[in-house]
Amino acid sequence: MLISMHPLPKLVLCLLWIVAALVVFRLSFQIALFAVATLVLLFDARIPLRRLLGLMVPFALFGFGFLTTSVLFRAESGFAVLMAQEQGGAPEVAPGLVLFFRVMACGMISAVFALTTDPGQFVRALMQHLRLPAPMGFALMQAMHMVPDLRAELLQMRMARAIRLGRPLRRVPTPPEALALAIPLLAYAIRRATRAALSFEARGLRPGRVRSQLPQAQISRADWMRLFAGIGGLALLLAMAPQGLT
């Protein structure tokens, strides 16, 4: 359902959910947001559970920092309590736990947007509806192209390096290897960006030029309905939280 939703209402909806996660300091609410986002990823976006668990790892590690600070170093938890008080009240349980689930909820909501949105369509929508300048939009698309290409280039450089040093290819590069590859990789990225810029210019792209757009999907009534349903769902979760905004 979310995959077919227009990127801009989806962005608004996800931002609203993230803002709600940031302003409401309630464990039950954070858990509810996290659970809804995870269920959407599992059943609507059909992301395999294994990949989903993998995605959670960086957010969990980040959130775990708050949790350990709060639980193991109680003297430090004053920071979290202070945060809770600044947001309107005292936390219901250990503040570190709330912060942990806040990170998880925000991470999963971001993942919902990232994994259900076509990046090219998103940039096109920004150019069409929010007047993102075309050179910037195409530079963004080029950067998105570059990520997989940089990975392939990095792998090829590592293979070439392994060949030169006469040793097998390591699964994960060691820190000295990664450091040695950083500059050639950066040089590759610069050269690649230069070639792309030349190509853009040769094909008629320049700042300030009036250009047309390939017709894109418009924001439909179904998109508005999904947006309002999402906002309604958020309101419901807020209402169900025992003390609402604390």
């Binding site: 076509d118 080029q142 998105m144 290409d149 792309a196 190509s199 853009f200």
Partner: peptide, 9 residues
């Protein structure tokens, strides 16, 4: 090298 000069997504 078309691989490095394409603009669209």
């Amino acid at each position: 090298d078309a691989a490095q000069t394409l603009a669209g997504f």
